[in-house]
Write a protein that binds this DNA or RNA. Structure first.
Lengths: 212, 212
DNA sequence: AGTAACTGACTGAACGGTCAGTCTGTTTCA
DNA sequence: TGAAACAGACTGACCGTTCAGTCAGTTACT
């Protein structure tokens, strides 16, 4: 038993909570652009209007702050992907195209997860377990959405839903990275076309001929 | 005129060239796992069997070393993608699936570009211009391959080759990132299935009906 | 009065890069 | 032929800076 946990639980004031929010806000923007290793606590603190020591009062270590940022990001992503209900069926493709289309609304926070993932591929990456399990969770969720649609007959039976789910997420995160280095590429258009063709291809079999 | 260039051009010995190669070798492996910011010159130097100062004798700055690593990587990638001839047509999908299948042969260097890209999305990323223009070049090359195939009638005329090219690269680099965090995913299988369906979808129109 | 919120000064470690000098092999020339 | 001159390839010590985290003390809210 190395640690029995905090001996004293502090009760945050409204002001303290607001400041924590602001710090997470600012940190999100910095991390999405420069990653964890490229962002200093001083940068974040200055932009958030506190001293570096003040920031560390709210988040005792840098890693704690990273987790707070990811906590919020996870919530946000879940709202985007599953906000319309937990079983969107084939509409998942339109949802994803919609997400890509919304990148231009808040460009500063796009790529947060992609950048942090890239920084944590090494074995010693502190965020790696968390990012890996979050990825697996999303793959499974999309796969089971596809499987449900398959059972309903919306998707042809031959489709391997697991591989398809991996493919979908690969396209999405890859497009994110491409857009980050070359913001002039037509990401929204690419995603819209992609979604259109995915839907056609997935139910093509049942439209042209009933069975293989 | 801030610099008139090197006053003395050194002629490297065979031994020096061999050591430079070894350093680039080692650096590639480290950079692919931990990125530029997560890799120290000391790490690379130790593994390459020189002192840190000795490394800096061959590569005056860290950035010089990064460019040397990318130079070699660019050559390698060009050989993989365009080694079979500059106009592979629809075979480009099999080539890409083959690249993914080869990841398990040299896993240590997979993800090098993806990791460096993620580290350089910020405006001040020193490698950003280079990585961005390399990306654009590859997009253009794939797009013109698709366009050539389209002229030959191998691909249906309605396909937007530019968007398709962006989609292809997004899938590839996204799958790379996914495989880096979760090496247990069936990347080769996913890419093979993806390639199969891409080829079918791209020439489907001309198989089922001649025109829209 | 008491606690949350915060600051300024500081520490120790890590890093990229510099520098003076050493070693080793090759070229030059009496 | 042999030694002096030279150049490439390094090393170890060092420097300036940056950064996450600590700490003692101050401010401000309730």
């Amino acid at each position: 038993m190395p640690d029995a946990g905090p001996a004293v639980v502090k009760i945050a004031s409204a002001r303290g909570i607001a400041r924590k929010e602001r710090i997470v806000d600012v940190a999100t923007r910095f991390l999405a652009r420069n990653g964890a290793r490229g962002t200093t606590l001083g940068d974040i603190a200055a932009e958030a209007g506190v001293s570096q020591a003040g920031l560390l009062y709210h988040f005792p270590t840098k890693e704690d702050l990273l987790h707070a940022v990811l906590d919020r990001r996870d919530e946000f992503e879940d709202a985007l992907l599953w906000g319309e209900g937990s079983d969107p069926g084939l509409q998942i493709f339109d949802i994803i195209a919609g997400i890509v289309a919304s990148w231009s609304d808040r460009p500063e926070i796009v790529g947060l997860v992609a950048v942090l993932v890239a920084e944590n591929v090494g074995d010693e990456g502190p965020l790696r377990p968390r990012l890996a399990s979050k990825y697996q969770l999303t793959v499974d969720r999309i796969a089971s959405t596809l499987r449900a649609a398959q059972r309903r007959g919306e998707i042809r039976a031959q489709t391997d839903t697991h591989l398809k789910s991996i493919e979908i997420l690969a396209f999405l995160s890859g497009l994110e990275m491409a857009w980050l280095v070359s913001p002039e590429i037509p990401a929204a258009e690419t995603a819209a076309e992609w979604a259109r063709h995915q839907v056609i291809a997935l139910r093509a079999e049942s439209q042209f001929h009933t069975n293989g």
